[in-house]
Nucleic acid binder design. Sequence first.
DNA 1: CAGGATCCACAGCGATACTG
DNA 2: CAGTATCGCTGTGGATCCTG
Lengths: 149, 149
Amino acid sequence: MQFYKKSETNRLNCPIQLTNQILGDKWVLLILRELFLGNTKFDEFEKNLAISKSVLTVKLNLLVQHGLIIKTDYKEEKKRTRSEYQLSKKGSELIFMMGAILDWGNTNLVSKEETYLKIIDKTGAPVKLVFVNQNNKILSLNDLSFELS
Amino acid sequence: MQFYKKSETNRLNCPIQLTNQILGDKWVLLILRELFLGNTKFDEFEKNLAISKSVLTVKLNLLVQHGLIIKTDYKEEKKRTRSEYQLSKKGSELIFMMGAILDWGNTNLVSKEETYLKIIDKTGAPVKLVFVNQNNKILSLNDLSFELS
DNA sequence: CAGGATCCACAGCGATACTG
DNA sequence: CAGTATCGCTGTGGATCCTG
């Protein structure tokens, strides 16, 4: 694999840094996991993650502010109004990152003897991520390099 | 004492959680960026990231412990021995995650008027990530679902 | 140059109690 | 149920000084 080398990376406008400012903490990625698993309600997050209410509130508000999730109120018959949180388009586009983490984590960290999480297609077969060029031709890692432009 | 409930998501063996325990902080992802950009030396990280020495030491050791980077000593003529850090195979496989974050960050957070970071192929054209099945057929996002198995 | 050792400030988080 | 409010602890990170 080739690497681009330059002494002056653009730090402030860097997509890694900006993304890390949103996702780089103890909880946000795990909340996103719950959202991708289809959970939408406050108490589902609270129960599944064993997170404190106050922190959960803060993180959900943060995700709303950044436009990754959308909060809506709904009401079932004879019940009080409740809130639910759903991934926005922007948020759901993180599925590529989630898929990459799933692949890497399953390969390198997870015990395959136990139950584990993965992404499958409609036939139930596991999928994988690949880099492609403009013509959808699959690229080898040796073809890739980082660049500032 | 808390008990793990098998009927729910496998939290303890979850690839997202396990990966997040390594990457989910303020600095690790940015150090990985520097490594993917080809930087290898302590003072390069220190200068590029504006991170304090003590924290940088801790984070580098952590990455070594987790097997994401390899520390080696080397010595140039007439100079003292120095250390360098390079991505291991395990670490460099995170390029899919880095690529996904680059794509997402560039689309959603980065000002394209300024310089920004991306991944290109040998012709200099930008690449993208796609999900494929076992036969390398590109999948639509509608075909995907998360599953425990 | 590559850390170690200290010290300190503060943000993050959990626990608990309270509210509409 | 979905938060607020408050409290206190701990861990993270920055700053400074020291070492081979």
